[in-house]
Design a binder for these strands. Structure first.
Length: 304
RNA sequence: GGUGCCAUAGCUCAGUUGGUAGAGCAACGGACUGAAAAUCCGUGUGUCCCAGGUUCGAAUCCCGGUGGUACCA
């Protein structure tokens, strides 16, 4: 049996509730893989329903939620580091670790054991690169080859970061942190497109009723910049645009709805990509009763 | 009831003097190892309202319907 259980799925597939039940059954703890739920104060918009982590009156321990202030920049590198810290802690207490979330990149970085060096910001280099065009930056980047892995470099910001990393690696050849790949059974929650769209739309109405606009307003009042909120995307982006008067309520609703639908599609593209890259995902239909999902999952877990 | 205008992709619309049609958005597919809910790339999916006519050839011109719309009664 593999030590780690991964639960993934697109937004609105019910993965959190399922993972909480699974944890409750296996005396497990949940390690979140959600790039936005790490932020404190971003609750309604991220669907951070902490009541989900309570099954039959008993709390299910969870990790990597509410670990940063809104407005902070939390990265893949931070996540990988935090995951391993928490993961070894859970194992040391003889608990079952359940990795659960919708951020495919975070999940894959852990499962594959991405090797990321700890590269600090190089302000001098950034200043020098800033005035250059994307074409020039791409040329500079190619002079650093061979690069084993790097982000896409479609924008100047990413190209500069890629150069920064490449430059650091050239000066510090043995700088990669060695996180080994983690073996895991992967359970995926499958929700057909039509149900997914319906759930997303009704959930959006519910979130607005629950005070999502006020939540964004309060983040702004606390000094989180509109640009940062917009960068966080989806709910935070469109509600910020609404609150700052850039769009009206109707536009906010319909554009946000569309953006969430597209986001769910991108998540599925990532998960399909993971399968192409060699991961086996055991898909369970979201509409099955919880108990049935648990039983099916347990079979896959025992066989792993 | 009369007259004008409109009817083309899921939506909003373009389409020249007649040569079987194309934009935006949506949708769909994909990439993606450092803010990934981000960022980026690709794909046109059509009874041109219906039925006749003119023509070698009709989304386009003519006639008759149907539906919508505006004004006049």
């Amino acid at each position: 049996m593999k030590k780690l259980i991964t639960v993934l799925g697109p937004t609105a597939s019910g993965k959190t509730t399922f993972a909480a039940h699974l944890a409750s059954r296996l005396d497990g703890e949940i390690i979140s893989a959600d790039s936005r739920q790490v932020y404190r104060g971003m609750d309604i918009g991220t669907g951070k329903d902490l009541a989900d982590y309570r099954i039959g009156g008993n709390p299910v321990p969870y990790h990597l939620i509410d670990i940063r202030d809104a407005g902070d920049k939390y990265t893949l590198f931070n996540y990988q580091h935090d995951f391993h810290k928490v993961y070894s802690d859970v194992l040391s207490r003889n608990k079952t670790a359940i990795l659960c979330g919708g951020t495919g990149l975070y999940i894959e970085s852990v499962l594959k054991g991405y090797r990321l060096p700890d590269v600090p910001e190089n302000t001098v280099l950034r200043k020098r690169l800033e005035p250059k065009s994307l074409d020039e930056l791409t040329r500079i980047l190619s002079s650093y080859k061979p690069l084993h892995n790097t982000t896409d470099t479609d924008t100047k910001k990413r190209a500069i970061r890629a150069i920064e990393i490449a430059d650091f690696q050239r000066k510090h050849p043995a700088s990669e942190l060695d996180y080994p790949p983690v073996e895991s059974v992967i359970i995926g929650l499958d929700i057909d497109r039509e149900s997914r769209r319906q759930k997303i739309s009704s959930r959006l109405k519910k979130r607005l009723d629950e005070g999502m606009v006020a939540e964004v307003q309060s983040l702004l009042n606390k000094g989180v910049s509109p640009d940062d909120l917009i960068y966080y995307g989806l709910e935070y982006k469109f509600v910020t645009l609404y609150v700052t008067g850039k769009i009206n309520f109707g536009e906010m609703f319909s554009e946000l709805e569309i953006a969430i639908h597209r986001f769910a599609k991108r998540q599925m593209t990532w998960f399909r990509g993971m399968e192409r890259r060699g991961f086996t995902i055991h898909w369970l239909d979201f509409s099955l009763p919880v108990d049935e999902k648990i039983e099916k999952a347990l079979v896959h877990i025992r066989n792993s």
